[in-house]
Design a protein around this nucleic acid. Structure first.
Length: 433
DNA sequence: TCTGGGGTCCTAGGACCC
DNA sequence: TCTGGGGTCCTAGGACCC
């Protein structure tokens, strides 16, 4: 384990008058789990991501692959060129979830106030005296030690607020512990590029550059009101966070966040050009979206169709349904109607997405197998689906069950076959590169 | 061979109502 | 005679996150 790097004053003892917040980030997480599960892959470049032939991108590159310049979000064909000997995998999300849960239990065990922000990241509160009298640094070290016993490693940033902790965690990966002592936040942040702060992406970065603002120190000196005029509500917050004086709380997620939309989108290996192909693609993604809605017990009353014509140009169209539904036969038909407004014969389409939203008031409900009653019994009166739709929904539910029991590739609707979904890259990126 | 997928939040413009 | 203005809802697009 590495030694602790302390930013700011020398480490005498703990002057944490206010708060101590940590951010734990698992190192090259997906790739590390693959190396854990495949001992023969350890020490070798491993890339988790979509295949080059399918216009995929890199989700996570192991540190051995990063040496070659491979990083997450890089197009796979480019990664392949940089590192032709890499071991590729499309990833095993359920397994990553499992390891992540074990890691989060460790953090939770070390301090009760934990805010998980993604599968591989969590904030935690280690303010001395709040839950324990122990030194925050000792707690962080122990978290790192215990996580490493699972076979993966993490980096931790420790500071007086979330922004500082998050940026500190990225200073020394992998296996780093970076501490920013109270009172040194502004000095720590000042020389860093604005892009180092989450919330500032490439668009804001170049907008800020146009204003002559390149570092967090420069950003911290801006007039909040002027920034509000330029960047809207995000403006003043940006200035506050860059100054190191942000006071956002670590908050335990006791109730899972309410889901606001469910969507499925797919990029195709070759652009789709005919109405037939597009209808089939919409049927395909709609069926996947329907299955996910039923799994989550959600019914929505808004449908969104999304088409990407090329890498820069995405268009969406939305419409309102008569009643909330989780049945792809209903919302898929609407999505196909929306196609008329977005697409004309001859236009090439690289991505098709269908989303359902508008769940307000529709509480998740438990569904029995072959349960035909879509009202849940406690909703305001809604239209009873016409008989053919009801039968089709029953078919969808039966299909869900067969897929659950025999694997998702055994069944698909007729012309769906050409869109077999076994190699899509559906994993999140490993941070920003 | 030429850049994913699943989300959230914000904004701007138009429709509509009073 | 001419032409208001605020509030709200809906839609489309974009930025950003991991």
């Amino acid at each position: 384990m590495r030694s602790v790097a302390i930013e700011g004053m020398p480490h005498t003892d703990l002057p944490w008058n206010g708060r101590a917040v940590g951010l734990m980030d698992l190192d090259a997480f997906f790739a590390s789990v693959e190396q854990l599960d495949h001992p023969e892959w350890r020490g070798r470049p491993v890339i988790v991501g979509g295949s080059a032939e399918r216009r995929g991108v890199v989700s996570t590159a192991s540190y051995e692959a990063r040496v070659y310049g491979v990083h997450s979000a890089m197009p796979s064909f480019q990664a392949q060129r940089l590192c032709p000997n890499a071991i590729w995998t499309h990833g095993h999300y359920a397994r990553y979830r499992e390891v992540s849960d074990q890691v989060m239990s460790i953090v939770q065990d070390e301090t009760p106030l934990v805010e998980q922000v993604s599968i591989d990241e969590a904030f935690f509160d280690v303010t001395p005296g709040r839950y324990s009298r122990e030194s925050p640094i000792d707690i962080c070290r122990r978290i790192q030690q215990r996580v490493s016993e699972l076979g993966v490693t993490c980096s931790i940033g420790l500071g007086t607020n979330k922004t500082v902790a998050k940026i500190a965690s990225e200073r020394q990966k992998p296996r780093g512990l970076t501490v920013v002592l109270p009172g040194t936040e502004a000095a720590f942040l000042a020389p860093l590029p604005v892009r180092a702060m989450s919330g500032i992406g490439s668009a804001s970065e170049s907008h800020l550059a146009d204003l002559g603002i390149r570092t967090l120190g420069q950003l911290a000196k801006q007039d909040p009101e002027r920034m509000r005029q330029i960047f809207g509500v995000a403006g003043p917050r940006m200035v506050l966070r860059a100054s190191g004086r942000e006071e956002s709380q670590v908050r335990a997620i006791d109730a899972p966040e309410e889901v606001k939309s469910v969507s499925i989108e797919r990029t195709f290996a070759h652009d789709l050009t005919t109405r037939d192909e597009l209808d089939a693609a919409i049927d395909h993604v709609s069926a996947l979206a329907g299955a996910r809605l039923r799994k989550k017990g959600l019914e929505g009353s808004q449908v969104t169709l999304k088409l990407k014509f090329d890498i820069r140009h995405t268009h969406t169209a939305q419409c309102q349904l008569d009643a909330p539904t989780d049945d792809e036969h209903v919302f898929g038909a609407e999505a196909k109607r929306l196609l008329d407004g977005l697409w004309r014969e001859g236009m090439g389409v690289r991505l098709v997405g269908v989303g359902v939203s508008g769940f307000d008031g529709a509480r998740p409900k438990q569904l029995g197998l072959f349960d035909l009653d879509s009202s849940g019994g406690n909703e305001e009166p809604q239209k009873t689906p016409k008989k053919p739709e009801r039968d089709l929904r029953a078919l969808s539910v039966a299909t869900d069950d067969i897929k659950r029991r025999f694997g998702s590739s055994v069944l698909s609707y007729g012309r769906d076959l050409r869109f077999r979904d076994d190699t899509s890259n559906t994993l999140p990126m490993d941070g920003r590169e």
